[in-house]
Nucleic acid binder design. Structure first.
Lengths: 135, 135, 135, 135
DNA sequence: GTGGTCTAGACCACA
DNA sequence: GTGGTCTAGACCACA
């Protein structure tokens, strides 16, 4: 469900927060949905429970998640079905900017980038198993 | 020449290293080229000289830069004109994977992403001034 | 465990690196052994933590030490029990060369040098408390 | 006449100062003897003249050398024929201490060290051309 | 002018 | 508790 990369420069708890926010914004995590427990996630990703816990805590403070004593945390009700498209697009801005900068510095063309995206897009999990469907 | 973002999760010195590597890989920084001095870069980006110095240092250990006592550091000779396209493409992999993951989690389409790229691509400096030329 | 001399021309972080390398080469620091924490060493030698940190960092890049998030750094597994005698001898080469040069320039004899070594050898800690046992 | 190693941690000007002091202490550089010119030394060792100049200057301040307008610097008169043996021995102390520490950390024996010294001692220039005379 | 080393001290990520 | 990053600023070696 989540992809956490401890090697990446970005702190693990931030990676998790960002991904939860996105799944909530898109409605894939609907209000009321229970999240995996801290322990479960920690085990699955071989990460310290406190790291997961920190992400959940901050998301609760943000109002994205709700804490339910003795039960799993759930997605808060606030968000309507889905954040407006414009808002979700804005959440991609930073990522796109970085990618474009990287491509230009590598003297690669827009076409190269689009092809790469095309390629990754087909991957089951967002890019770990390469199983291209079409060129 | 470089774009450093202190807000980003990625440490500044790593951002700089990555960008130098890319410019060297693409041949935009040719072997023998002198890099901006530590102080110069530090001033320009309102960053501590030691932060720049750390990046340069690590790049020297990596063999990307050469130290010249009392004179500016230069790009090492090793790399031929330009790294092969395949290798440069691979350097974009991680960025693309992240972007695709983000888009999917936001339930945005490939088309949305490509449009955003299109948009950022036109920006003068890799993404700071928005001056769209065409849709 | 380590002897750091801030007066010496050699940067402190390099002195530390050299000593760690030697203890690892000799097997006195076995693979898996935890090193003293950055803060501990810094306190003990009245040195800035960043100085110690820099040495540890570079040793990690060299592959001598391993970083364990949130836990002390450890000696990497790579080296077998002990580096071969020949290799360890080669690590003394530079030191010996310098000493011989110094002795010759002072017009002292090989015998003088050997006596001095004999003398320092008996010292508990490698040369700080003079407690000669025999001539 | 001098051996300067830019790689060594020790600053070049200090290496030079130390060697001049030793040759003077031993009487190999007698009072009145002219030293090589700054330029000459700089050329020979591929080093910036200012570096040599700095060493000479500091040695003049120390009273070891004399400046002679328009003519080469010379060894000052102060020192008698040769510094007393005890004093010269003390000048080796630091070097010996370092060597003994290194040997112990490498788990090498006093005998190993003495053999190495024996070996280097035969070398013409203090250790660059290996021309052993005897084991 | 160049880069290198070090300090004192703040704050962060992770266990 | 562990190490990592960064700052502001001093001083050094070398060109």
């Amino acid at each position: 469900m989540f992809i956490l990369n401890p090697q990446s420069g970005t702190p693990i708890y931030r990676q998790l927060m960002e991904q939860v926010r996105r799944l909530v914004a898109s409605g894939q995590l609907a209000p009321g949905t229970a999240l995996p427990s801290v322990r479960e996630l920690a085990m699955e990703h071989a990460v310290n429970p406190m790291t997961i816990s920190k992400a959940y805590n901050l998301l609760e403070i943000e109002g994205v998640l709700l804490r339910n004593r003795g039960k799993p945390m759930t997605v808060a009700a606030r968000p309507r079905a889905q954040a407006p498209r414009a808002k979700r697009l804005r959440q991609l801005d930073e990522e796109v900017k970085q990618l474009v900068l990287a491509a230009k510095q590598l003297e690669l063309g827009k076409k190269d980038v689009v092809e790469l995206i095309d390629e990754k897009w087909e991957d089951e999990d967002g890019g770990r198993n390469r199983q291209r469907t079409r060129a």
